[in-house]
Every structure is written in structure tokens, then in C-alpha cells.
Design a protein around this nucleic acid. Sequence first.
DNA 1: GTGGTCTAGACCACG
DNA 2: GTGGTCTAGACCACC
Lengths: 126, 126, 126, 126
Amino acid sequence: MFFINSMSSEPIYEQLVLQAEEFILTGIIKSGDMLPSVRNLSVSLSINPNTIQKAYTELSTRGIVFSVPGKGCFVSNNAAQIIRSKNRDNFSALKAQIEKLKLSGVKEEEILNLTKSIYEGGQHND
Amino acid sequence: MFFINSMSSEPIYEQLVLQAEEFILTGIIKSGDMLPSVRNLSVSLSINPNTIQKAYTELSTRGIVFSVPGKGCFVSNNAAQIIRSKNRDNFSALKAQIEKLKLSGVKEEEILNLTKSIYEGGQHND
Amino acid sequence: MFFINSMSSEPIYEQLVLQAEEFILTGIIKSGDMLPSVRNLSVSLSINPNTIQKAYTELSTRGIVFSVPGKGCFVSNNAAQIIRSKNRDNFSALKAQIEKLKLSGVKEEEILNLTKSIYEGGQHND
Amino acid sequence: MFFINSMSSEPIYEQLVLQAEEFILTGIIKSGDMLPSVRNLSVSLSINPNTIQKAYTELSTRGIVFSVPGKGCFVSNNAAQIIRSKNRDNFSALKAQIEKLKLSGVKEEEILNLTKSIYEGGQHND
DNA sequence: GTGGTCTAGACCACG
DNA sequence: GTGGTCTAGACCACC
């Protein structure tokens, strides 16, 4: 389920956070579901438990997950909502990204086509 | 000319590199032009000379500038081309970003409009 | 009678202990009364019997209840007194809390009014 | 400056966070000041650097502090404000605390006197 | 079994 | 020198 790219410069715990968020947004993990236990995931990914713990703690402080000691780590009710509102803030980042590409000689059409292809591809999950 | 945001999480040397690239793409600096000397820039920005040096070295290894010992650091002939081809790699990053925004409920129209507004507003000289 | 909030960060056994103490202080349970059996309570609350047992053991070591093997768990004669003396230790915690609130800009009047409202509103039977 | 009570059940990193907040509220540490370096503090308190790091990270995510890698950890401009607004939320906790004390037989006068003595003792820092 | 905290020691990027 | 990440391994409380 989770996958680690150890060559990436992105910290492992951040990769886990982003993947968890994606799983929640796409409905693979639902509210109330329990995330894999720290130990389980650490062995299945061959990663130190502390690193998993850090990822779960991060998700917890963002309110996406709540962890019950001795029980497990569970997806909050409004998890998807929290993630979406956070991601919407990335809209301004998109602007900067496109401006850079424009400077690099990327044509408007290329971006428009990319956008359309992404939105036509899959169904929107609401 | 150069401007440093010391509170940014972006490394100072990286800020310098990106600004130099932008100056080249926008034509503010042209092929053959000499970059400010390490010593000059370090005092005018109140920055450690090593940091300037690192930025220049980075630009040099990318082939964007070449340094002539005892003379200075000069913009290569194909500098703009190198930068553009590098930045084109960001196209895939754009795809990931748009996919995220889609999941977050951002509408296709919003992105299309953003793109159009960026490309319609003022032509850059390149 | 007992109520468990499984999402609380407060351990379940601690919730049981505190609720039992409150029931005793407020007179809902009196000296000599028998607490619900471990088995009964465990099914009615859908909780592991070990957890109930731990709560009862805790109450027992504090001298608030005593358990008669094969019979049940009974409230001691001086239960209320023990609880009160223990809770009086919380007085110092109150001091720390008020000092924090003072630093945070909470006015003296606010605290005085809160205190008065608590003490004026409805006498407890004890 | 910082002090650790290793006997306390309160996690060390939390003790550090609370103390830092207190230092900021009382003006011992001001906006823009740099906190002791992770390594310095770890040796002076005989504590693992990771534990200090965790405390600083916590302060950072709360916006009380911002850390610049390679530079240090600095108090934010609105640090005191953030701490105060957070602490004001503890007002409701105070209510529960006082209600408990009432049940334990603590007299209204005792609490009123405690409050007055705290507020008369020192000057209010604004 | 679960999550949470801590220690010890390592490596990295940055200045 | 600085903060940030990670590993390895330990101990605790709780269920």
C-alpha cells in the first residue's frame, strides 16, 4: 500500500504523509479506518519505527488522523475536508509554477491540453 | 539587482542561482555579460562569500556560466537554452500539482483561466 | 451509570476511577454499596474486563473500595474523605493554572466571577 | 535558563515547550531572539539532542518560533500573541478544575483568596 | 498487541 | 557552527 522512494530528496516521513493524504482523498482509506500499525509498517517497508511514528504524529497534529495509544491510528471524520482545504492553498503555488514554465518557452496550449487531459481522464470523486 | 530573503526556507545560494537564471531568461543579463564579483556581491548583500561562490559554482557546473580565473564569471552563449531545457523538466511536476488540485476539488475552469490570464497578460521579451 | 469516551486521551481505566470518585462524592454511590461486577460492567460498556479490573484495583489501593473475593467490590466507609483529601492536592495545580491565565492576559475579575458563579449555582449534597 | 524535572511524568520536550512559552510571555526571551542551539542545550541539560529538536519543532509548528537551518531557532514576531490566545482556551479547563475542588470540599473563599494573591503579587506584563 | 517518549549516534545541507 | 532526518534499540503505559 505505502511505497517509499529512498532515492528521493523528500524525507521519508513526508512521503508517507503525502501518500496517506492521497489514499484518503481517493477513498482508498476512509474515515474511521485504522492506519497500519507503526511496527507493521516499519517492517513491511524496512524502515525505522520512529520514522513511521513521525509521519503519524504529523498527520495527527494536522487533525487528519487521531491516534489512540494502545489502540491504533485512525482517520478523522473530516480528514478529507482538512486535506482539501490545505491543498487549495497550493493554487497560488501553481501560478508561480506556470509563470516559470512560460519563461522557459512552454506554450500556453501545452498547459491547457495537459489540464484538460487530467480532468477528462478520471471521474471526480466528491 | 540580486535580493536575498534570509527568512526563506530556500537556501541562499539557491535563491541566487534562481535569480541569475531568471535574469538571463528575461534578458536582463545577456551572454558574455560578467556577473558581479564574489567580493562585491558578498558585501552588497551582507552575505558570506562562500555562499556566493557556491551559487556561482552551481551555475558553472550547469554550464550556464564559465569563470575565468582572475577575471570573473561570464554568462555562456547557450545559457538561456540550458535553463529552458532544465525548466521544461518541471512540466511533469506541473502535472502532479494539477492532479493534486483536482483531488482537492479545484475545478478545471479555474486552472484554465489562470493559465490564460498568465499568458495573455504582458508578453515577456524572449 | 458509567460512561466511556473511547476517543479521549484519558485512559479508560482512569475515566472509570474518576467517575466512581465523582459518584461517591455526589452521593450517587454510598459507603457499603457494591460496585457493578467486573463482568457486568465489561459487557455493558463493551470493554475488556482487564480494564475494569485495573480501575477497581486502583480504587482499592487508594482505600476507596475494598473487594471481597467471590462477593464483589464495596465502597469503604471513609471513601469520600479519602477522595477529598486527594483532590485537595489539586489546589496547587489550580495555582499554576491561574498564573498561566494571568500571563495570558485573563483579568482577575474573570476568574473571580467564574468562581462565584460555580459556588452560587446549586448546592451539591455533600 | 531551562530546567528539566526528570521525575515528572510530563515529557521532557513538553517541559521545554512550556518553559519557552513562559520565558516569552514574561519577556525573558523576546521576538527575534535566538533560542539556545540544539547541541548547546542538549549538553547543558544532559539531554539527547533529538529531544530538544522535538521541542523546537513543536514550537515551530505552533508558529511561536521559526527555525532557519544552519542559522538557529528564532522567536517569531507574534509569538506572545499566539501563546496568549492558546492559553485563553484553558479558561474552560479552569472551570472543570474549580468544580472538582468544590466537590472536594474546598471553600469558595480559599479560591478567591488564591486568585487575589496571585494578581496582587506581581505586575501585569502587557 | 498498540502508540509515545527517550537515548545514542550517525549523516546531510547550509553558512 | 547550525537545524533536519534517520537508524537502532530501549522502556513505558494502555488494552
